[in-house]
């Protein structure tokens, strides 16, 4: 029973983290048909920037709670700056190219950013653990939960809720859905697709950076951070259905819980379990649990 509680708690925390990372990726794919490998770099940049800023914050002895706002600020700055650079400087020129070619272009971007990160921050790890212990703990039955983890869950739910509300209850969200549904038709109806793309990519980038920034206090920020995140986010997005936001929520939950179950019950299957689910879903439902097929007309 206790094990089950651990699995559920760990799984939900892990799922929240996955959701924050993956929701931006799936949004960008859904609207722009860009499967962004560099999303992992945005994550890493967010984490490094946050860790550096938090480090400086505590060194100067400012109010500790302010560091939480700093994490959000780091994500916002990194996401907006990098989002602008990548969208206006690269993706715009790849409009209309094969999806797989665009993936390769973002892979190239990822390679470049990997070295940029290393040039800026070097090879040493950047720990920034202070915010993690700021909020105290809560005990629930056999579990002792860190409130920072609970805040992460809240953040994930907030992001999920906001995207749902934004897409289904606002006019700009409906425009976005129109583009996802039929880009040519949307263009014909006078929707400024270029601007929709830019805004979408900025939101996606901020979310990617936020994933990194919010994780920075929980880990030791070090080299190769983005590399693992990319495939994990791929797995979540593919399981849920490429481009589907409810799918990302479902995918994150499924993968989060399965990984937690594997860690507690069969540690050697930790990595295996995640990709087993990914491949099984692709085999049984190629378009993901909540995705749908695109058909060609002759």
């Amino acid at each position: 029973m206790a094990t089950l509680a651990f699995i559920v708690a760990d799984g939900i925390i892990y799922a929240s983290w996955l959701l924050i990372v993956a929701v931006g990726m799936t949004l960008v794919y859904g609207v722009m048909r860009v499967l962004n490998v560099a999303h992992g770099s945005l994550y890493a940049l967010g984490a490094y920037t946050a860790a550096t800023m938090v480090g400086a914050w505590f060194q100067r002895g400012y109010a500790p709670l302010g560091s939480l706002a700093l994490l959000l600020a780091a994500a916002l700055v990194v996401g907006l700056v990098m989002g602008l650079i990548l969208e206006l400087g690269l993706l715009r020129f790849l409009h209309g190219r094969d999806e797989v070619v665009v993936v390769l272009a973002t892979y190239a971007t990822f390679l470049i950013l990997e070295d940029v990160i290393q040039l800026i921050w070097g090879v040493e790890a950047r720990p920034a653990p202070q915010p993690y212990s700021l909020l105290g703990t809560t005990s629930v039955g056999p579990l002792l939960l860190n409130n920072y983890d609970l805040a992460l869950i809240a953040l994930a739910l907030l992001i999920g809720g906001l995207s749902w509300w934004g897409l289904t209850r606002t006019i700009s969200g409906k425009l976005l859905l129109a583009v996802i549904f039929d880009r040519e038709m949307a263009e014909a109806c006078g929707i400024n697709v270029r601007r929709v793309f830019l805004v979408t990519f900025l939101i996606g980038s901020v979310l990617g950076a936020l994933g990194g920034a919010s994780t920075a206090p929980m880990i030791s920020v070090s080299r190769g951070l983005g590399v693992d995140v990319i495939v994990l986010a791929f797995a979540v997005v593919v399981v849920g259905g490429l481009g589907s936001i409810p799918g990302a929520l479902l995918g994150a939950t499924v993968i989060g819980l399965s990984r937690a179950a594997a860690v507690h019950l069969l540690p050697q299957a930790e990595v295996f379990a995640i990709y087993l689910i990914m491949t099984l879903v692709l085999i049984v439902r190629p378009y993901g649990l909540l995705g749908h097929e695109r058909l060609r007309k002759v």
Binding site: V231, V238, V271, F272, Y275, L276, M278, T279, P286
Partner: peptide, 12 residues
């Protein structure tokens, strides 16, 4: 994605 999935399975 499916080919990636298979390779990551083996890696895992």
């Amino acid at each position: 994605m499916l080919s990636l999935g298979f390779s990551m399975l083996f890696y895992g």
